[in-house]
């Protein structure tokens, strides 16, 4: 056993003896406490709340206060009950302060803030409803009419389709269908072909004017869906047509 280990052991044993001696001291009786001083008069307290804290001009808010140990309460300088509530309708943002007075001249105070906002201006007159694409289509798009047994784009149809192309380029997200129609005369099977030629002639012309061909679907109805059913040239002319139809999203 080394010399240092021996000294450590002696120190521990010595400390243990001191602890035992101290433990014996706790059993001595405690001294009597000193007599307390006389209680001072209690200080007043007060709370003040506004509900709601934010109103529009013309609306009202309720102030509620509650005091303790007060002999008198003033709200913004006016004497009020010690506890109570009051409705206020400030026209602009206002601070409210409640002061409680104690018996020996002590005071306490609390404040609340009511924010007053001005009512929103009357709503602006509703903007005119945006015309739907179908409305615009109906107002702007013109059909291309054809001579009998012909599928070439004649001058009046060129004019109509040039205006159509401008509209179509301004609405590049719109897909559409070109229907080819024929009048009631001639052979029904052949007119399926003639109607197809008319639809494709209109498509080709629009593509030439810069309209994206992938937006266009063509269909021939031959003489099956006439716009007019009288047996007159005026009526037949209405039926010899390349008719432009807005594609519904489903299509």
């Amino acid at each position: 056993m080394s010399h240092s280990r021996l000294r450590y052991l002696c120190t521990v044993m010595g400390a243990f003896a001191v602890m035992i001696a101290l433990a014996g001291c706790r059993h001595k009786p405690a001294p009597a406490p000193p007599t307390p001083p006389p209680a001072p008069a209690p200080a007043p307290t007060i709370t003040l709340n506004a509900d709601p804290t934010s109103i529009q001009a013309g609306q009202s808010s309720t102030l509620t206060w509650s005091s303790q140990n007060a002999t008198k309460v003033e709200l913004n300088g006016a004497s009020v009950d010690l506890n109570g509530s009051q409705s206020v309708s400030p026209t602009e943002s206002t601070d409210y302060e409640a002061v409680a007075y104690g018996a020996n001249g002590q005071t306490a105070s609390a404040s609340a803030h009511v924010t007053v906002t001005q009512p929103p201006p009357p709503p602006a007159p509703a903007p005119a409803p945006q015309p739907s694409i179908q409305d615009l289509w109906n107002q702007n798009i013109k059909d291309a009419y054809f001579d009998f047994d012909k599928s070439n784009i004649r001058p009046d149809a060129q004019e109509a389709l040039q205006a159509d192309a401008e509209f179509l380029k301004q609405h590049p997200d719109v897909d559409f269908i070109i229907e080819g129609h024929c009048d009631e005369r001639g052979s029904a099977e052949y007119n399926m072909g003639l109607g197809d030629r008319r639809a494709n002639a209109v498509k080709d012309y629009l593509v030439q004017l810069g309209v994206d061909g992938s937006r266009i679907r063509t269909i021939s109805y031959g003489k099956e869906k006439p716009f007019c059913t009288e047996h007159t040239e005026a009526c037949w002319q209405k039926n010899r047509v390349g008719h432009l139809v807005l594609a519904t999203p489903a299509q």
Binding site: D147, F148, D149, C182, D183, R185, G186, N191, L194, W236, R240
Partner: peptide, 8 residues
Amino acid sequence: TGGGEGNG
């Protein structure tokens, strides 16, 4: 003679 869509 004649005939066609525009000719009855």
